[in-house]
Amino acid sequence: MNVELIRRMAAGDALALETSIDEFGGLVWSLALRFCRNRADAEDVVQQVFLDLWRGAGSYREELSSPETFVATIARRRLIDWRRSRQRRGAPVSLEAAFDVAAPDAEQAWASSDEVRRAIGLMQGLRAEHRRVLELSLRDGLSYPEIAEMLGVPLGTVKSHARRGMMELRAAMVGGAA
């Protein structure tokens, strides 16, 4: 049980940290590789995420989020830090990373968890243009100006889509009480 796994880490059980690599490694790698588009940088991020997980396990609150969301939140913080620390445009994209991003691996347990299924259901409820902007920003790490250029729409429109998409998700997650 992943909740128990995080509790064990919070208690200082290093074996639980090892187990977490098997439980969450694919998830973190999936987030990082797509975002960084560079295998070496993605590896660095993964390493930092598990260190952060070890450090921050005690902050986990079962009633507030699933373990998957908790891990993804930690990973996103690291990815945003990574993005901030470098000029993303023009960053090298390795052949290996390009292939890795394009090709899914065999079925991964984390991808069929209840939390992930719930997340997919939420995203399916978004308006297409909101979803597209969130996809490019959250998943691919593109800035709003980059997305505006890619989609050929004004910057303000991109910002609006991102914000409205997030508000739509919030409304959906609390049962429509935005």
Binding site: I21, G25, G26, L27, V28, W29, S30, L31, L33, R34, V46, S65, E68, T69, F70, A72, T73, A75, R76, D100, V101, A102, A103, P104, D105, A106, E107, Q108, W110, A111, S112, E115, V116, R118, A119, I120, L122, M123, L134, E135, L138, R139, G165, M166, L169, R170, M173
Partner: peptide, 17 residues
């Protein structure tokens, strides 16, 4: 919320470590 959305996107092409 951002993490939840990112989970959904990542699950489209899941990778193994």
């Amino acid at each position: 919320i951002a993490a939840t959305a990112h989970l959904a996107f990542a699950a489209e092409r899941p990778k193994a470590l």
